[in-house]
């Protein structure tokens, strides 16, 4: 518990990080309470089409070309965007941490093979890889998550590998070897917990970029057609960008707020968790 309090003391020093955390908390609340704020299906035609925000009392954000409530879309879309962002990040972390941990702990030949593979993946432009994967397999939410994670794990692997390389030489790890602890146990209980701080920092930014990737896919028409995400809303509004720009702007602002918040949280985490900056 003392660690958590100390963490919060360091974190709150950065005012923008606190603002980011509050904004993110707001987005979470909206996602959690989506059914309360805006009951019903966001795909339903709820009113007259192409109502501007504020034009009619029941539709503070207006309606789109088919009369769907944009508030409902934004509120329900937050669930989708956050879910895809977090799921893709979790999957990428799982891949990256596993590969990086094995490469870093065992070193030598294993390290060479895994790191060359990581570099090969890293040389492929990640959005292009996502596009290709989603285009080959069907654009469902699960496939989008898989595609994003497959193309974004390399930086995690490299980060974790570097941490493991330095940690495995530390004396407390050697002490565990001398005690007779097995390798998997050393990796999981000794090295991994000590290597996670930079991973936590990078993961908040990864959630942000996964949300952006999903939105980009949807904008290009490669989103899951059955779910209302912010990207889907932007692609619906794209055709009437000149006449009814609010249809793109409102979900766009939602994306900006969420991505900004995640980046600010990432910076705050970096300050609070990065030992080199401690005690400043």
């Amino acid at each position: 518990m003392g660690g958590l309090i100390g963490f919060w003391r360091l974190y709150r020093r950065r005012r923008m990080a606190v603002a980011g955390a509050s904004a993110l908390l707001g987005v979470f609340l909206v996602a959690l309470l989506a059914a309360v704020i805006s009951p019903g299906d966001p795909w339903d035609m709820a009113g007259r089409p192409l109502l501007w925000p504020g034009q009619e009392v029941g539709f503070p954000f207006g309606t789109d070309v088919l009369g769907r409530d944009i508030l409902a879309g934004v509120v329900h879309g937050s669930r989708v965007s956050l879910a895809i962002g977090f799921a893709a990040t979790m999957a990428a972390l799982l891949l990256g941490v596993t590969i990086g941990a094995i490469a870093g702990y065992f070193g030598g030949y294993v390290d060479d093979v895994l790191m060359r593979f990581t570099e090969i993946v890293q040389t492929i432009p990640s959005f292009l890889l996502i596009l290709v994967l989603v285009a080959i397999f069907s654009p469902s939410a699960v496939n989008i998550v898989i595609a994003i994670s497959v193309s974004t794990w390399p930086p995690v692997a490299r980060l974790v590998r570097a941490e493991f390389l330095s940690l495995r030489e530390r004396e407390f790890v050697q002490a565990c070897i001398v005690l007779g602890m097995s390798r998997p146990r050393i990796i999981l209980t000794q090295v991994l917990p000590n290597s996670l701080a930079p991973v936590v920092v990078i993961s908040s930014v990864m959630v942000a970029s996964a949300i952006l990737n999903e939105a980009s896919l949807a904008f290009l028409g490669l989103g899951d057609p059955n779910i209302m995400s912010w990207g889907t809303m932007i692609s619906i509004g794209r055709n009437s960008l000149r006449t009814a720009w609010y249809m793109v702007a409102i979900p766009g602002i939602a994306i900006i707020i969420t991505v900004m918040a995640l980046n600010l949280v990432g910076e705050g985490l970096n300050d609070a968790l990065n030992p080199r900056l401690r005690g400043r």
Binding site: E171, Q174, V178, Q190, N194
Partner: peptide, 12 residues
């Protein structure tokens, strides 16, 4: 068993 040199590095 072993006692290590660096008391700051030898404990998790």
């Amino acid at each position: 068993q072993m006692v290590f040199q660096d008391p700051f590095g030898s404990l998790n």
